[in-house]
Design a protein around this nucleic acid. Structure first.
Lengths: 224, 224
DNA sequence: CGACGGCCGATTGTCGACAGTCGCTCATAT
DNA sequence: ATATGAGCGACTGTCGACAATCGGCCGTCG
């Protein structure tokens, strides 16, 4: 199917750069739900023309971070607790169960080593209290596995779900979970993956993602 | 949250128009997985500049119908049976269960009448053998309910899932289900909704969507 | 004969300018 | 007072031109 797409990405286009900046601003809460996004202002602020801004906005729209209305502009969207708990997280579980299953045979030793490195870094970040960095590592852990699954649609959907979930926990779920625990949970998940027991992995994935919502755990604070 | 967005959409922008054309071409199979999409060609063909084309492509990319690679263009994507059965359909069930639940209290008599009209039209389309029209009505039925649920994220995600599922059944699942059956199933679903028993509705929704995958039913041919 | 490296055509990425639409304000009329 | 509707900013939507990058072609060299 792919005459294209067999190569590594060369460097990030400006559109992607803009999208990243805006995504960060939104998930961090610097831009709040209801805030208006004016293309000309953003273009001036980021030193580009409106074209890349517009395309980035289209992308964020599909990621559910932004809504836009013809001739009337764009605004930042919020996410309700109901949607996170009853829709986004369950969907994430469906996605990741499938992706981890497919990835199991494909993970190389290099991949496993990389995953271990990410977990190690999580420990460092956790003890340094660097919540942002911890969340980034968390995302990279999951994204690496999903990428290896080679299921394009899974990866694509994960990328549209994940920012919303992250935005919710960063903005709206104040109390962060025990940061050291995040690292530990990923270590456990990685160990199960190494074990190679398929069903055990799928169960672990499900529990791993579900943990955020544990009522006892009081709204864990990371994203994966 | 919305200073914007309280109004009706005025008319379809050219970008949306382009997106529709391409979506139709892809889901119908006229454009096949692997086909290259050249912006300049599309612009010429549709009589616009490249700007709306590019934005439409970004949108289709997020809908999983197209993949694009920096400086190297876009191509039509395919969907595997595994992804449809294990990812897209289960996600659809999650989405619609939630949306139907939220919509139950909000559906007005007008809405119910409109739904009934859609089902009636399905019967007509079915007996006339108009599969395309039947699928359109099917989509509109579900989209109306999801819209009424007023869960933006549900609607947004549904819109990104649905084209892939439709593309799969149109292109890859040859044998269509009994068309009259599609209409009948929607009538049953609507009747359960009228009944107002919440749990019954959720069950009905799940079964309704799942029906496509029944091994006995041999890959039913509609999209919802 | 195969590897390397610089051109070249094709196509995407970006820009600045112009056209179109929306919501608001404010005069005007009832 | 309240409605009406023309005018006006402030934006978004679209366009055509230009810049940057990619992949392949082809000559050169080991």
């Amino acid at each position: 199917m792919s005459r294209l797409g067999l190569r590594r990405v060369p460097s990030l286009s400006r559109r992607e750069h803009v999208a990243e900046i805006l995504r960060e601003a939104i998930t961090s809460g610097r831009l709040k739900p209801g805030d208006r996004l004016v293309e000309l202002d953003l273009a001036a602020e980021l030193g580009t023309s409106r074209a890349p801004i517009r395309e980035a906005l289209r992308q964020l729209e599909q990621e559910g971070l932004v809504a836009s209305y013809p001739y009337r502009g764009s605004e930042v969207l919020g996410v309700s607790q109901d949607e996170v708990e009853q829709v986004l997280v369950p969907i994430r579980i469906t996605l990741e169960r499938f992706a981890f299953d497919k990835a199991l045979d494909k993970l190389t030793d290099d991949d496993l080593a990389e995953l271990q490195r990410l977990v190690d870094d999580m420990l460092v970040a956790a003890s340094a209290g660097e919540a942002e960095r911890l969340a980034d590592l968390d995302i990279r852990f999951h994204e690496l596995v999903i990428t290896r699954s080679e299921q394009r649609h899974c990866l694509q959907m994960w990328k549209t779900i994940q920012p919303r979930v992250r935005a919710y926990f960063r903005r709206d779920a104040p109390a962060h979970a025990d940061t050291a625990d995040v690292a530990r949970q990923h270590q456990e998940l990685l160990d199960v993956i190494r074990g190679g027991d398929r069903d055990a992995v799928l169960d672990a994935v499900e529990r791993h993602i579900h943990i955020h919502l544990a009522p006892g755990g009081a709204g864990g604070g990371d994203v994966g």
